[in-house]
Amino acid sequence: MSSASSPPGDALGRLCDASAAIGALVLLAIAGMTTVSVIGRAFFAQPILGDVELVQLGGAVVVASFLPYTQMRRANIIVDFFTTRASAASQQRMDLLGTALYTAVMALVLWRVAVGGIDIHAAQERSMLMDLPLWLPYALMLPGLALCVLIGGVQCVRMLRDGPDAEGA
């Protein structure tokens, strides 16, 4: 966990942990389903029809569920090449800018994925073989994306409030 300082942060941290765990469960389900399908295909000429689309749909949910955890750990990679000699304070200002931009971008993405899902729902688009509604993966991406906005916002607030080192990884 990135910060042990404040209780709301801890709750948020636990949410990010939970999100990653959910993503991992979906990933395990994908792995299991695919394995069953390959065995079925190889030995019984009977794969799971639509295994590929399940991987696609599930993969989107996995990634969205993982994103907030990455940001919580401050693991979205930065180039420190040019700023190693900069003072802690100016590095802090730059990180605030970076986190603020991250939050804004994720908010934009959250909004647009939500609208995209609504559009797909209205168009009644479905997956080719399993006939699953395609708005579903869009909807299931939203909690992860929302958590990205939340964690980014909270990190910004903390950096403003606590000054340097408040967000040591």
Partner: peptide, 23 residues
Amino acid sequence: KLRAPTRLTNKFLAMLGATPVSM
């Protein structure tokens, strides 16, 4: 394992005994 473009072609290939893959 046969690639097919659309929903109905996928269904048709499945009914013919193949495993359709959609892409």
